[in-house]
Structures are given as C-alpha cells and as structure tokens.
Amino acid sequence: MTARVEQIREERSCSDCVRTLSILLYWCGAQAAISEREIHDLARTGPDLKAKTVCQFLRDQGILLQDPNLHRAIDLTWIDTTLAALPENLADEVGQWVKALRSRGRHEGEARGYDAIRPYLASLQPVLTAWAEAAVLSLREITRHHVDAAVDGQSGRARRQLALGLRSLFRTLKRERVVFRDPAQHLRVGSPTGIPKPVPSDLLANALRQTKTPLGRLILVLAAVHAVPVHELRTILTCDLDLARGTLVICRGLRWHTLHLEELTHQIAADWLDYRHRRWPASANPRLIVSQRSALDPDHPAVGKTLLRDNVPQGLTLVGRLRQDRILTEAAETADPLRLMRLFGITEKTAMHYVTTAHPERTAKLPR
C-alpha cells in the first residue's frame, strides 16, 4: 500500500512539472534562456505548479538563466534575515558568534553547518528581541539575572534548547573577547538531575515488530543498537557501508568512527540497500538514507529529520530515548568508560556520566 501511494504521488508530481513547463514554453518560448526567477514566481501562483524540477530540467538543456540569489543556503538566508532585524550592535555581536561557530573566529575548530546553527539562533531570537526592546545595547550588559529571567517559565525541550543556545552564545563570545564574562555559565541543561532515563524493555522489544518499512527498521537498529544520533543518520553515505566486512564508517568532524555490524543490523542494512535499488534504480544520491524526493534530486539533499521521526513507532525518539538507552545499557553491563568511548565514539566526560548513572554506588561516597 505504501509503495502504491508513493507511486501515485510521483505520477502527480510529474504531471505538475509538465503543466508548469507547458505554461513557461507557451509564454516565453524555447528560443531564449528562461529566467529562473520567473519560474519560481510562476510556481507561487498555484499549488499544482513545480519550480525546482523544471529548473533542473531546463538547466540540463542549457536554456536556464540562473539566479545566484536563489541558490543561497536556506538556513544562511534565514540567519541573515534574523540578524538584520536586530539593532546594529547586537547583530554584530551575534554575527561574531555565528562566524566563530563556522570556525572563522580567533580560534580554529570544527566548523558547524548553518543548518546546525539555525536551531540555536531560533531559540535565542525571542530573547534577543526582548533584550533589544528593553534598550539593551550590547551583550556585555547582560547579567545572570537576565539569563535566569529568559529561561524562567520554560520547560522540557524548549528550555533545553534555549539553555544550550545561551551557553554557546556567551561562552563563544567570551573566548572571542567580545564580552568580559559568561552570565550563562551556571545554567543547567536538560532535567534538573541530568540522569539518563532508560526505555521500557517492553516498548523497545515491540518497536522492531511494529516497524514494517525497510527504512524504519534501519533507522531503529542504528539508533537503538549502535546509538547513532539523528544528524549522523542523515549524512551517512552509501559507500560508508561495507556489507562484505560488516562495517559502517561514520564521519564525526575530523574523526572517523567504525561500527561493526552484528547479524541483525547487517541483514536489515542489506534489505534496505536492496529496497533502495529496486525502488529508485536511477538514483545518484550518494547518501545511504534517501526519500521519494531526495532519491532523484540532482542536488543530492539529505533527508529531513521529520522523515526519520515518522518512521519510528510513537513513544520513541531517536536522540532522547533510543540512543540514550543503548549507551546506558552498555554502561550497566561493563562499567568501563573506555569501552563506551570505543563503541559509541563519545567523549570521556559523557562516558563517565553514563557509568556514574548506571553505578551510583561507586561514586556516592566521593567528596563533593
């Protein structure tokens, strides 16, 4: 049934593209190059008109007049628009934070993508706007009281994201010598106790049986068995998976982490590759996980996070539950932080946190 629905959607999308192309050629002809901006303007006039696929087709035919402004990263455009809405001095300071995260500051480091910076800035935007309306001229004026007031009333994921954003903003700007102190240094992130919580065994046991699609099963085993975070699931390449050797290599910044696949994950990965090849035999997207839209897209985009969440049974989340439960289970079995670091590619601090949580009796009497 799912395959049939996807087929109908593809046929409908193809019909919309043909309709868009017919209108363009009727009004503009095929003798001269067609402006990319005009195609996007036309697509906005009706829900059954498509711009991106038509532009890709005309580009391949050599009759597309490209508009560079349309090819700027969506996340970069959003960040620039958000900064432009702030007062000049605040915008300059926040802009230096963005540059530092992009490894363009005083200290070199791992450069973050604009798609990773945008969620932080999105959580900070209401706070920065409120500070600007309160006549705050510079982030140097912000005190611990301002930070506490900003997170007061927030809870759950919203509070965690805001606390992470505030800590990143002031820690980075202090390192860049833009501010003199870090008023967000005291903020706690996550739950008040910071203790990882396991997934109920019955819920996890039924998850694989409930997941019917090859993609859903692959996402589930990589998250629940190998603790692969969601942002890495989106960027894994097909060439990183070696079924002959039973390994999956994941790039983590400047490091490479190798997963050794057990029988279950190996079989599910092979099933997904077989389905992927049969479903989209002409796909040139190098990413391991593709969707109906990304498989045949010449720009080879990564799948969205929503697609990954929708393929996991309700009651489970990729980052907050499955990955956390897997590391916590291993910590309870081995109590060896070095093993956790080798298996999951986590830092020493994170490994010790999980070991301490799994075996509180070993550190209960340590002086504080």
Rank of each mutant, 00 (worst) to 15 (best):
K305V: 10
H300L: 00
L261P: 09
L307Q: 10
Q314R: 05
H277M: 13
I289V: 12
T357W: 01
T258V: 13
T329A: 14
Q314W: 02
I346V: 15
A351E: 05
H353E: 13
T334R: 11
P301F: 04
F344H: 08
K349A: 15
A284M: 07
N311T: 11
H353I: 10
I268F: 08
G315E: 06
D297G: 06
E263A: 13
R293V: 12
L322Y: 01
L308P: 09
V303G: 02
L318T: 10
R278F: 10
R276E: 10
R276D: 12
T334I: 07
Q267M: 04
L366C: 00
V303T: 09
A358M: 02
T258R: 11
V312H: 05
E263N: 08
L322D: 07
R321N: 12
R309P: 01
R321E: 15
Q314K: 06
L296V: 12
P360Y: 03
R309E: 09
Q314M: 01
L316P: 03
Q267S: 10
L259E: 01
G304T: 08
Q314C: 00
L316A: 01
A295W: 04
T347W: 04
A302H: 13
T258F: 00
L328I: 11
T306K: 11
Y354L: 02
V319M: 11
R309G: 05
Y275A: 10
S283R: 01
R339V: 14
Y275M: 03
H260M: 03
K349I: 14
L338D: 14
K305N: 09
T317K: 01
H359L: 00
A269P: 13
D299M: 09
L338G: 13
Q324H: 08
L338W: 09
L322M: 09
V319F: 08
R323M: 11
E330W: 05
Q324V: 15
D336G: 04
V290M: 02
W280C: 03
Q324S: 12
T350V: 15
D274P: 02
D271Y: 05
L296G: 10
A295G: 05
R287T: 05
N311P: 00
L273F: 12
E262V: 15
R278M: 12
N285H: 03
K305Q: 13
F344L: 04
G320I: 04
S294F: 00
R287L: 04
E263C: 03
R339E: 15
L316C: 03
L308N: 09
T329N: 14
L264N: 15
D310I: 01
L322A: 07
D325N: 15
A335Q: 03
V290T: 15
L254I: 03
L261Q: 08
T347A: 09
D336F: 00
P286R: 05
H266C: 08
L328Q: 08
R362M: 11
V312A: 10
L340M: 08
T329S: 14
Q267A: 12
H260R: 10
E348Y: 07
R276V: 07
L318C: 11
G345V: 06
H257E: 11
L316E: 01
M352K: 13
H353D: 14
S283D: 04
L261M: 11
T350D: 08
R309A: 09
T306R: 13
P281H: 03
S291Y: 11
H257M: 03
P286M: 06
